[in-house]
Design a protein around this nucleic acid. Structure first.
Lengths: 339, 339
DNA sequence: CTGTTAGCGCCTTCAC
DNA sequence: GTGAAGGCGCTAACAG
């Protein structure tokens, strides 16, 4: 029984073996549910485990099996409810299948995000799922190619070698939104985007812009970019409305920014939806409590989480397709009061 | 260079040593910034590391050092914004100090939560911080006593041996709320509580009840319990208002439940705050967007996260006080429109 | 059915 | 300043 730095001790497999009067190997067999153990022996070992409060050390086990039954999950902002829903979905799925999910924040400062994913690897995960956010496709490809484990990207529909991508069909979503706005008579549609990293293609922005140009004939729809938080959305929407007083609709990058737009309209005395229609993305529950309640694109976070988890699992067994793979999910427009 | 199950390989310290033409120990010294390495040797090793894209295996390292520079964090619901804020705060703090935070969901089915915390331990964390939620003090004590690492509990002000507790001063919070309500003429105050586990003492409920009894003279303030989600809060508040039509104030267990109460009032045609005043806990950002905006108890999530992290850190060095320790945080009442 | 041997990737201790 | 031996806790492969 070895001492830990602070003096408290945790039993090892050897302690169990000593007490049960067997070899370490036999204890290991009991732990792994190996069939060829005499029932009496098994019972003795189980009793020893119970009495000692023994728990196997997963690091030691992973070191030799090269498998930790652990997946890693990374996203820039766990407080973002769409990320949170997906993370929770994966956690649930993991639990049911005997896996463990290690969650961490994707840090730009950490080698443009690659460092975060690498650290996950050195922690011994069997696969990595993540929301790319600011990460560049090239970095993602390099990481995936050298990772030696399945890599699943959620929320960007790019085809990257060695990567399975689970993403919303952004074109379909943009069309749903703009069709709805145009049908209710809107013509001047502004867009609130996530703060942009110039290196990164914003599929959402591109899709929205195309849909707006196609359906309203406006050549360059106004856009303002900021952090995807309520107060930044409020600021950006205020700027947008000041610069373009004739705007009759605003599409937010997500529900949170759209809520900021709601506040901006209040500030400026514009009625929603009479003067300005507002639409968000994600379908978070708080959208039901705003005034008016938020019209939004609903993403099937749970379904996407399940798909991501299954992709990791099958990647562990069969490897990830070298050419990469994209799984697109169809959006749904939830019409509430704001548009 | 060993092969992983899927065929892709990751370099080990031996590969680096071979390429740099030194022994493993020298590579290890470079990795650990050991001073006694010749500059030229160091450079050769660093180049080899760079070229190979080598990253040390933290599990192997932790196995021998008995230190992983990793802390574990657990909470029932990562989507709860107060939990999320605290988690994000700890993650930030961890990063700055060279630590890594492993986050997971506390599962009741997993041995009443103890299993979740134990699994974190078998993953090799150097300390555990968690929101106890449904966990019982006795289980927490047992876990902490046998964990062999610092254990920090957030959000329950109980003094438990081997545990450092970082919690809101519930009495102060309850008094702030009830004083404010009474001052604005409310006398019939109902309470929305988190779904109750009979074994667990709800400090928040006890504090609220005492404050209400003291200040209004009502002997048994009405209470309804359900999950801390908007729709459950709505249901519970509806029940409460139906059973007690004379209620003129509702205190929610958290902001989310309070938002449910907002919806219930809308459903039943009660004006907020004219007919019914509503107060929540936590001070989440979405409270600013509801109609009317939510009056709430603000918790200093970041400050509490910092304190929790520091407690873990000092626990690693000096051990956790055997008698346990409670750090109380003072609440603040943010008065917006709903009360 | 059970024990022995070897080694996962790395660091610590002790040589030189 | 550098290398060799030994072991962290565990399981795989082989013996018996």
């Amino acid at each position: 029984m070895k001492r830990r730095p602070n003096g408290i001790t945790r039993p090892t497999i050897i302690d169990v073996a000593d007490i049960a009067n067997v070899s370490r190997q036999t204890v290991s067999r009991v732990l792994l549910d190996h069939p060829r153990v005499a029932p009496a022996t098994r019972r003795r070992v189980e009793e020893a485990i119970e009495n000692l409060g023994y728990r196997p050390n997963r690091m030691a086990r992973a070191l030799v099996t090269r498998t930790s039954l652990t997946f890693g999950f990374a996203a820039v902002d766990m407080q973002d409810l769409h990320f949170g829903d997906t993370c929770a979905g994966m956690q649930e799925e993991a639990r049911e299948r005997g896996y463990y999910l290690v969650v961490t924040r994707l840090e730009f400062e950490d080698d443009r995000g690659v460092g975060t994913l690498e650290t996950l690897l050195t922690l011994g995960v069997d696969g990595v799922a993540f929301f790319p956010s600011f990460m560049e496709n090239a970095d993602i490809e390099t990481f995936a190619a050298t990772s030696g484990c399945p890599v699943v990207m959620i929320g960007r529909g790019a085809k990257i070698p060695y990567v399975v991508s689970v993403a919303l069909d952004e074109t379909a979503a943009a069309n749903l939104i703009v069709d709805h706005l145009v049908q209710s008579g809107r013509r001047q549609i502004g867009v609130l985007m996530n703060e942009m990293f110039p290196e990164v293609v914003h599929e959402r922005f591109v899709a929205l812009q195309r849909a707006i140009v196609d359906r309203t004939g406006v050549a360059r729809p106004p856009v303002e970019a900021d952090h995807p938080r309520i107060k930044h959305g409020r600021k950006a929407a205020t700027t947008l409305l000041r610069r373009h007083p004739d705007l009759d609709a605003i599409v937010g990058f997500n529900d949170t920014m759209a809520m900021g737009a709601l506040l901006a309209c209040q500030d400026l005395g514009r009625r929603v939806p009479e003067d300005v229609a507002i639409v968000g993305y994600d379908g978070i529950s708080f959208g039901a409590v705003t005034s008016p309640p938020l019209t939004t694109i609903v993403q099937d976070s749970i379904g996407m989480a399940d798909a991501a988890f299954r992709a990791l699992l099958s990647g562990v067994r069969d490897g990830v397709p070298v050419e990469g793979e994209v799984m697109l999910w169809q959006p749904e427009l939830l019409i509430r009061g704001s548009a």
